[in-house]
Design a protein around this nucleic acid. Sequence first.
DNA 1: CGGTGGGCCGGGAAATCTTCCCGATCTTGC
DNA 2: GCAAGATCGGGAAGATTTCCCGGCCCACCG
Lengths: 217, 217
Amino acid sequence: MTASQTKGISILLVDDHPVVRQGYRRVLETQSDFDVTAEAEDATSAYAAFKAHLPDVVVMDISMPGASGLEAIRNIRLRAPRARILVFSMHSEAVLVKAAFKSGASGYVTKSSEPMVLVQAIRSVARGERAMSDDVAHVLALESLSPSASVFEQLGEREIEILRQLAAGSTQEQIASNLNISMKTVQNYQSLIKTKTGMRTDAQLVRLAAEYGLTSL
Amino acid sequence: MTASQTKGISILLVDDHPVVRQGYRRVLETQSDFDVTAEAEDATSAYAAFKAHLPDVVVMDISMPGASGLEAIRNIRLRAPRARILVFSMHSEAVLVKAAFKSGASGYVTKSSEPMVLVQAIRSVARGERAMSDDVAHVLALESLSPSASVFEQLGEREIEILRQLAAGSTQEQIASNLNISMKTVQNYQSLIKTKTGMRTDAQLVRLAAEYGLTSL
DNA sequence: CGGTGGGCCGGGAAATCTTCCCGATCTTGC
DNA sequence: GCAAGATCGGGAAGATTTCCCGGCCCACCG
């Protein structure tokens, strides 16, 4: 049923910036066996687009407003376990990379990579392999060696997402609404995050998050 | 000497992400009177590229690693006061926008804008006009209405010092001790600072302070 | 299987922090 | 002297934080 059976690789682009999507297209259309069949601009519409087009590979930025990109990945993989998702992100911090793979991503390429790195990575994941850019591999490799786990190591995915939104300046109410949980739960997580990381104030959390690239600032 | 005299608008692209630069190119090359003559990938090389090509318009992302994009703007305008610089950013916070214009930018367009918005903005700044995307205008307009004209200038010395320590991660208790005042006073200041600046959470205060260079981070 | 551990979700209650009110002092400038 | 404004803090109501608890689901293991 997918377009991949006979010839090219069909691709769904997910990014909230139109111009960046244009950039994907420009790079990808130089490859005759690539076919960009759809685009989506947020996590929620990503699954709809996936269902409608059943692309061979989803190329996705995970730092999008609102719902987490990680959740979108899980969402897609839940209903389509054979989906191949390639994360294309500004950040290469180990926490994020590991979270992405754990959520079901097949590859991870940073936006600072040369365009051809993205192209090669797409081919790899389309073949069912894992792929990542050099810088990501470097980060992961170092991470796997050091027994000194980063502060984030001990944070669950939910905790990381809440920390990210907190650091971005969202109020508890907004976070609760974004994640469809109660404010009480947000408060409990916030408190838990502080004890786990050893931070005492919200301000320290912001700085911690910024240090690890969780927020742009 | 520049290429603009007779026909098209020559453009220098500055962004640290190759793929994003491809996106610029793709959009801009649809315009027959545009001519993307150079690219740069960081703030420091931006001036060199400007000097070498003397483009009519510089399209620049200001959130780049290392040196501040704002500094690059100032750098260019210092030696070439007639340079036209259009900021193209992910963020539209009033502080950033104002800082950009203050540094010498001629326009400000967010990356979430439709591509044609960027195109029109480039034409505007090439004509010597100011230009910005709707969302940026919205933010600035609201800002100009609020009694907090400059958000920051209206803070007293004591308020700024407390904001600085807060943003640095100090607890109320530490601040009170440092300044030899009661915690209650610190709390009152903190509250006052929020209302004056329009920030709602501590996290937003940290980001505000960081954007103004109040804290290193 | 059933048990165990972990992540996720929230209630309860006391402690703490925030907000918005108020008055006090002190300096500055007219 | 007097007004303005910066600094300092109390009081009280409301919101947040902390720490405790139990329930749910899922993955792993004996």
